[in-house]
Amino acid sequence: MSQEPIPASAYDMDHVESAEERRTLAVLVDNEPGVLGRVVGLFSARGYNIESLTVAEVDRGKHRSRITIVTTGTPHMLEQIEAQLLRLVPVAAVIDITKSKRGIERELALVKVAGKGEKRVEALRIAEIFRARVIDTTNESFIFEITGASDKIDQFTELMEPLGLVEVSRTGVLSIRRGKDAG
C-alpha cells in the first residue's frame, strides 16, 4: 500500500473479473518423493490451469528440482497460485518469469515429417530457416530437432502441417532469468 496511491476503500480497487493472462512460473522445490504430486495436485484441487509443465533435478547435492509451469488465470488467481505454491512445505521459492521481464523461455521439440519430392525439399528448406537440425532421416521422412520460444515452435509445426507432419514431441517450457544472479 505504501507504493501506490491508497484507494478510498478496498472496493474501489479493480474488482471486476479481469481477462486471463498467461504466466510462466519457476518453482524451486526439494526433490523429495511426491513433490511433483503436491504441486500438480494443488493445481487440480483449486481449479487452476496447467498449460505446460517441466521438471528435473537441477542441483543433485542440495536435492533441488526446478519445475517450470505455464499457467493462465486472472491476476487475482495468479497471485493466489503463487501464495498457495509457497504454502507447500517442500517449495523453496516461486519465481514469476513472465512478470520479471528478464525471463528467457525456451522449448525443445522433436518433429517428424514424412513426404517425398517437392514437399520433402520444402520441409528441409524451412527447417534451415528455423535453424532446426535433422537428427534422423529415411528416404521418406525427417525428424527435426528445434529449440526456441514456444510460439516459434508453434509456427514451425504449422508450416510443416501441409508438408507431411506426422508427430510432435515437445518438452514444455524451460525458463531462466537474465543477469548474473540466481533465482
Binding site: 476503500s9 472496493y11 474488482h15 493466489q80 501464495a83 504454502r87
Partner: peptide, 27 residues
C-alpha cells in the same frame, strides 16, 4: 460484493495465501 462496502481493511494472518483470497484488503 456487498461485504462491508465502505470500509478499509487491515488483515493480520500468518498465511500469506489468506490475504486477498476472498476479500481485497488495504493493509
Amino acid at each position: 460484493s456487498a461485504f462491508s462496502p465502505g470500509s478499509k481493511k487491515i488483515h493480520i494472518d500468518i498465511d500469506p495465501s489468506s490475504i486477498n483470497k476472498i476479500i481485497r484488503v488495504d493493509v
